[in-house]
Design a binder for these strands. Structure first.
Length: 437
DNA sequence: TTATATGATTTCGC
DNA sequence: GCGAAATCATATAA
């Protein structure tokens, strides 16, 4: 019976430090002196220790009696305190873990990919970017694959949310169950609220590790989906007819210097509806590719492109003439400039045209006062004229189209001076009409 | 199925 | 970093 004081003291916990227990003991009928208290506690402990040796009925009866004992809450308080100060504190230090960076990364990724967070029309910016990358080209294929991508992403999103919900529900159910169980058990063994709390924490950690696995596999699924669609970007797709025409028009009307500036490339890209991938491509890269290929292939086999050149030259000349006939002095709205005008890259304003025609009869078309688009018009007109045999004498002395712009070294004159859409030649005397716009 | 056309990529020089 | 040239890969026509 002297086990109890030893127990108390061995854990550094004395009765005096437990107001509840002290109170109970003072208020109780078990006596107010120290011996009486020791006897009382000792009895209870003895009964607890011997409870397993008794028969079931007897044990039940004893259990009930113990449960109803006036000293029980006080004793449990003490035991809880001891537990907390020993086992739980040790376990607690071991279980404390740093904030999960991995989980945060996964969460951020899922958010960025449009899997978690608010739904934005079937995908996030990343999804749109990936889808844009997929399309690359023009037209229906793009939207088809885009929607295909979005559909698959939505599917992943759906599965993810369903599973997440399931896990959360299971977690809540299990937590409630365990809490009820512990509360129930707390009637027969000392369980502090802190211990219950800790247990809940453990359950949540376990479930969050399951959730992490779910997030990880979702991320993997999205990555696979994305890479599959991004691989499709590499797949060659022909530009549509309209896009090729726009590019060709620009090329042949800037034949002496077919090097569009970054601005011009972007503009052309827009006009051609060539979507540039935000993932890998810089804007205008597709246009750059096209011009790079075109220059090389044109130079390699000028004869083959003769007919095409004639066609576009004639087309451009006709446009220029019609513009001229209107007698407009201001910049035409159809002037392809950096301000983003619509329409094809045809001839510019009549003033420029007039000057260019004049220049054709002289030595130079790059003199002071020559406005934007002069070069393109000159290119075009020279070509047309050379084909029709007109201006033979005066033009024979100047640069003829055959091949226009390519010098003896096989390179383009002025190349690779970048030019804007509006002003292909940026010679010393040229006027930048694009900046005026 | 083959040839050709064409968009994309890589390599190299400047 | 840009462009030329070579090359790859694939779409399309024959």
């Amino acid at each position: 019976m002297d086990e109890q004081p030893r127990l108390m003291h061995s854990h550094g916990v004395g009765m005096a430090r437990h107001p509840g227990l002290a109170q109970n003991m003072q208020d109780g009928t078990g006596g107010t002196d120290g011996d009486g208290r020791k006897q009382d506690i000792g009895d209870i402990l003895q009964q607890i220790m011997t409870i397993t040796d008794q028969s079931l009925d007897e044990a039940q009866a004893r259990k009930h009696a113990l449960n109803c004992h006036r000293m029980k809450p006080a004793l449990f308080n003490v035991l809880c305190d001891i537990k907390e100060k020993t086992v739980l504190s040790i376990r607690g230090t071991q279980e404390e873990e740093a904030p999960d960076a991995q989980l945060m990364r996964l969460d951020n990724m899922l958010l960025a990919e449009g899997v978690s967070g608010p739904e934005k029309g079937g995908g996030s910016a990343a999804a749109a970017a990936a889808a844009a990358a997929v399309g690359g080209g023009v037209g229906q294929d793009n939207s088809t694959e885009h929607s295909d991508y979005r559909a698959k992403l939505t599917q992943i999103r759906g599965i993810y949310h369903t599973e997440l919900e399931k896990y959360e529900q299971a977690c809540n159910e299990f937590t409630t169950h365990v809490m009820n169980l512990l509360r129930e058990q707390s009637r027969t063994r000392p369980i502090s609220p802190k211990e219950i709390e800790r247990m809940v924490g453990i359950i949540h950690r376990k479930f969050s590790s399951i959730q992490m696995q779910l997030k990880q596999s979702t991320c993997e699924a999205v990555m696979i989906l994305r890479s599959r669609f991004l691989d499709a970007r590499r797949k060659r797709r022909n530009f549509n007819k309209q896009a090729t025409e726009i590019l060709n028009e620009y090329f042949y009307s800037h034949l002496s210097n077919p090097y569009p500036s970054e601005e011009a490339k972007e503009e052309l890209g827009k006009k051609c509806s060539i979507t540039v991938s935000q993932v890998q491509y810089r804007a205008g890269t597709k246009v750059s590719n096209w011009f790079g290929n075109k220059r090389i292939r044109y130079k390699k086999n000028i004869g083959k492109f003769q007919e095409e050149a004639n066609m576009y030259a004639a087309k451009t000349a006709v446009s220029a003439t019609s513009v001229s006939a209107h007698g407009s002095q201001a910049n035409s709205p159809s002037t392809p400039n950096s301000a983003g005008s619509a329409g094809s890259f045809n001839m510019s304003n009549s003033g420029d045209l007039f000057m260019s025609v004049q220049a054709l009869n002289g030595d130079s078309y790059q003199g002071a006062g020559v406005g934007a688009n002069v070069q393109s018009q000159v290119d075009t007109l020279r070509h047309v004229i050379s084909q029709t045999g007109g201006y033979s004498d005066s033009l024979a002395a100047s640069q003829m189209y055959s091949p226009q712009g390519i010098n003896t070294n096989g390179g383009w004159q002025d190349a690779p001076t970048p030019s804007s859409v509006t002003s292909p030649i940026e010679g010393p005397g040229s006027v930048h009409s694009d900046t005026s716009n």
